[in-house]
Design a protein around this nucleic acid. Sequence first.
DNA 1: CCTCCTTATGGAACCGTTTGCTTTACTCTG
DNA 2: CAGAGTAAAGCAAACGGTTCCATAAGGAGG
Lengths: 345, 345
Amino acid sequence: MTVTIKDVAKKAGVSPSTVSRVLSGHPRISLETSRKVKVIMEEMGYTPNMMAKSLVSKTTNSICIILPKPAEELFSNLFFMELIRGIVTQSSRSGYDVLISSGANEKEELESVSRLLKGRRVDGVILLYSRKDDAVIDFLESGGYPFVLVGRSDRYENILSVDNDNIMAAYDATNHLISMGHERIGFVSGPPNLIVSRDRLEGYRKAMEKNGLEMRAEWIVEGEFLQDSGYRAMSFFMNLPNRPTALVAVDDMVSFGVLRGLNELKYKVPEDLAIVSFNNIPLSELSSPPISSIDIGIYHLGYTASQVLIQSIQKPDNHDGYTNRFVIPHRLIVRESSMYSPVKK
Amino acid sequence: MTVTIKDVAKKAGVSPSTVSRVLSGHPRISLETSRKVKVIMEEMGYTPNMMAKSLVSKTTNSICIILPKPAEELFSNLFFMELIRGIVTQSSRSGYDVLISSGANEKEELESVSRLLKGRRVDGVILLYSRKDDAVIDFLESGGYPFVLVGRSDRYENILSVDNDNIMAAYDATNHLISMGHERIGFVSGPPNLIVSRDRLEGYRKAMEKNGLEMRAEWIVEGEFLQDSGYRAMSFFMNLPNRPTALVAVDDMVSFGVLRGLNELKYKVPEDLAIVSFNNIPLSELSSPPISSIDIGIYHLGYTASQVLIQSIQKPDNHDGYTNRFVIPHRLIVRESSMYSPVKK
DNA sequence: CCTCCTTATGGAACCGTTTGCTTTACTCTG
DNA sequence: CAGAGTAAAGCAAACGGTTCCATAAGGAGG
């Protein structure tokens, strides 16, 4: 049988309350008793029952990650795994356990979250996406449950969120190309309904504008976060009369598509087309040539999300109402794909 | 305040026990009462408190995944994420929640597992690795806790595990090359202390032997599950006087390295060297040329692990002592990298 | 020397469920 | 019509902790 607090108490010749107090470091316990009890706990191999603890304390010391449903793609998987690592590491340091949940659809997701939170199985939630409207967010907000969003939502202004400054990141990426001497720079964007696509596009625009460079509509192509989009964008760009000498792609996968296409057509990177993209997945440095990429600090994103959430769980009142958006720094990793200055005409 | 079973009972004019029985579908509750109570539960937005439930039932309806510590590599991340998806999906179908845990080192891992299991926070554990000796496994076994291993351990014969038949998989891969007409086939192995490396090597051996093909020691190279190993193996093979016309690589990443090397030296795949590898990561079909690979059904591996574990939790006695190793089928995905029959001399 | 604190501990209620044992009120049977 | 049998629901004791309140012992102050 499992050894309980009562067993320890009996053996130590004290009351259960005393044992409990020893456990929680209560000030009014004599050193002598404390030592004695601790020895006996060790001897008997006592481990506190978390359920009983949770029942009375109304706190579980665990949080929950909501995993989006489909996310079959390569990057999503890498992204989520890295994020999870960050979350789990930090949570574990703060003494929290992490639960993973996902549902086949939004309704299931909502049910699951509701069950976990109302059923007092977790203390808070990390949401790993930024959909535009969201029943789950509504539920969390109206229920007053602690949660943080990884990503950004423009509909909900004052909720806790952890994100990159994608506008700035794209600005930096574009600027890097400009500083290498490029003037005709293309942009391969992602789905326009994603905030990240829009932000990165805006950053590109800003950089071009700031530097007084021409911006042609035909230099901006919309796509997915997939190789194919890159492949298609590439062939479109390369057939343009006055084609770009460089491009910024919203995602490394897109770059791979571009690379593959250019390779087939015997173009050279970065001489014929310089490339910078985002996310810096492990493969970026392994392709030929290695791709310059903006590292968005995924692990750090997760780590911070956990920190923010747990903080908000422990002192819900501490929220100042201002700093609810946490920005994780990005950094540009320059590799071969952009190490070339075009010859000026 | 949260609404409890007592609140519902009071409002419905019945006793808490009756409400509880309605909840669990007890046979001796009249239809009338049952309906009435259900309506009131709905009205009041009642959600059972899992902690209280767990406390009395001594069961948590949740399992825990132990994530290995470093696993910085690309494949590991893809592998784990896919596995987690499988586990989470199946667990959720069985009404179980999934906890993720990891520790910085084996000691921390053990502490964590011990706390979770002895503290009654989870009912069972899925181990995602197959180290040779393992304090965690020892703890789980001696404590009689339900757990399953993803992977194979040869030291522990009678524990539940879910795995591929890597010997057969390698046999199939090799056989495929043989049936295409190859006779000189190389093998790039992984670290020799990993069971998966040894199994795959053995499968290769078996296939060669069975077909009466010559096996030269120089055709077998040891490496890591990394591009670099492939790159090095490639240059070694290609410099051999009577070089292989095909090779089997333990991992797709290795193939990528081989591919990169061959590309640099202007060799053609599959004409100069045909390639088959393992794991069928999403990138395999995107490289040029796409790589033939053995799909090991990672998602399925996770799905089954969860199934087996939950089964073992629910009826621990049902274990027949024979079928404790569950084998997930693999399948060969033939792509361009092996679609070529060498010209016989 | 008695009262009043202070300090260390014990007692008991409670957290929200489940469940074995009763109790109650019928219905059936001989 | 009495006794047995049965269906439906209630009572109360757990489950393993925490914590408020009470208590006992010892020391200080008057």
